[in-house]
C-alpha cells in the first residue's frame, strides 16, 4: 500500500512536467488548430536562454521573468515570420514546417551552447518536503507553479478582454473579425503565450532532466500524449491528462512484471490509445459537430 502511494506521488511529480508541456501544446492548438511539433524545442531554447542569463550573473527570478518575456516575443516573431505566410496551407505542410523549426532550434542550440549536459539550478531546493521523502521541494514547487499557471490562464481567458477576444477568434474567426478583433494578431498572441508557458515548463523540468539540446524529445512525446488524452480543447484537461500519463507510466513500470520496466512508455501509450478508442475526443474534450 505504501509502495502504491509512493509510486502515485512520484507519478504525479513527473506528471506535472508533462502537464506543463501539454498546456503549451494545447495553447497552440487552440489558436491555430495544429499540433506544434517544435514546442519542445522552443521550450528547450528558452531554457538555454535562462541558463545563459544566470551564467551572466542575473538572480534566478530576474532571469526567469526575462526568459518568459523573451520567449513570448520569440513565439510572436515565429508566428509572424514563419507561420503567417502559410496559415491557409494544408495540415501536412504545417507538420513539415514544424519539423523544420524543430531541426533549426535543436541544431542552433547545439551550435551556440554545445551538446554537453549542463546542470540547471532550482529555486526551491531539493530537500525532501515531508519526513519520509515522497516528493522533494523542487517537485512540490513545480506542482505549485503549474497550478498558478493554470489559475492565471483560467483568469486570463475568463475575465480579460484580450482573453475573450482570443477565445472568440479561435471559436469563430469570421464573426470575430466582424466585431473588430484582429484575428491574425490573436494567433500571434497565442503563440507567444505558448512559448512563454513552454519556457516556464522548460525551466521547471531542466533541474530534473538536465539541460541539453535533446532534453525535450522524451518530454514532448509524453506531453502530446497528455494533451490528447485530456482533450485538445481544454487546458485543465491537458494538465489532468499529463498527470494521468505520469501516474500510469510509473505504476506500469512498477507493477507489471517482466516487461513493465522496459515498456512503461509503451504500456502508457497503449492505455491512452485504448481510452481514445472508447472516447475519441479525449477525456475532457467536447465532440466536434460538423454541419453537413
Amino acid at each position: 500500500m505504501e509502495l502504491l502511494l509512493q509510486q502515485i506521488l512520484a507519478g504525479i511529480a513527473t506528471g506535472t512536467i508533462y502537464a506543463c508541456i501539454a498546456l503549451a501544446i494545447v495553447m497552440t492548438y487552440q489558436t491555430i488548430g495544429h499540433l506544434n511539433f517544435a514546442q519542445g524545442e522552443m521550450a528547450m531554447f528558452s531554457t538555454f536562454l535562462a541558463w545563459q542569463l544566470i551564467q551572466w550573473g542575473l538572480p534566478y527570478w530576474t532571469a526567469f521573468a526575462l526568459t518568459v518575456a523573451l520567449s513570448f516575443a520569440g513565439g510572436v516573431l515565429i508566428e509572424r515570420i514563419v507561420l503567417r505566410p502559410i496559415h491557409n496551407a494544408p495540415v501536412l505542410s504545417h507538420v513539415a514546417v514544424f519539423i523544420g523549426l524543430l531541426a533549426i532550434l535543436n541544431s542552433l542550440a547545439g551550435f551556440i551552447w554545445d551538446f554537453n549536459v549542463k546542470p540547471f539550478p532550482t529555486p526551491f531546493g531539493t530537500a525532501p518536503l515531508i519526513a519520509n521523502g515522497f516528493i522533494d521541494a523542487h517537485q512540490a514547487g513545480m506542482i505549485a507553479v503549474t497550478i498558478l499557471l493554470l489559475a492565471f490562464l483560467y483568469g486570463f481567458f475568463r475575465f480579460t478582454r484580450v482573453g475573450l477576444a482570443m477565445r472568440a477568434s479561435a471559436n469563430d474567426p469570421v464573426s470575430a473579425r466582424l466585431v473588430g478583433i484582429r484575428v491574425g494578431w490573436m494567433a500571434a498572441l497565442g503563440w507567444g503565450m505558448a512559448a512563454a508557458i513552454g519556457a516556464v515548463a522548460g525551466m521547471m523540468i531542466a533541474p530534473i532532466v538536465f539541460l541539453e539540446p535533446n532534453m525535450m524529445l522524451g518530454v514532448l512525446l509524453y506531453g502530446f500524449a497528455g494533451a490528447v488524452l485530456g482533450g485538445l480543447g481544454s487546458p485543465a484537461g491537458a494538465v489532468i491528462g499529463g498527470l494521468i500519463v505520469g501516474v500510469v507510466e510509473n505504476l506500469a513500470g512498477t507493477f507489471i512484471p517482466v516487461v513493465g520496466g522496459e515498456l512503461k512508455f509503451t504500456i502508457a501509450l497503449a492505455i491512452i490509445v485504448a481510452v481514445l478508442v472508447m472516447k475519441p475526443q479525449g477525456l475532457f474534450g467536447r465532440p466536434v459537430l460538423h454541419r453537413v
Binding site: L232, V259, E262, F265, T266, L269, V273, V277, P280
Partner: peptide
C-alpha cells in the same frame, strides 16, 4: 480497425504510439 474511430490528431497520436513503441518492443529481452 480500432483506428477507424479516430480522426485527425487523435489518429496521429495512435499511430505515433505505434512508432514509439516499436523500437522498445524490438529491444525487449524476452
Amino acid at each position: 480497425l480500432p483506428a477507424l474511430r479516430l480522426e485527425g490528431v487523435y489518429l496521429a497520436l495512435a499511430t505515433f504510439a505505434l512508432a514509439v513503441a516499436t523500437p522498445q518492443i524490438l529491444k525487449l529481452s524476452p
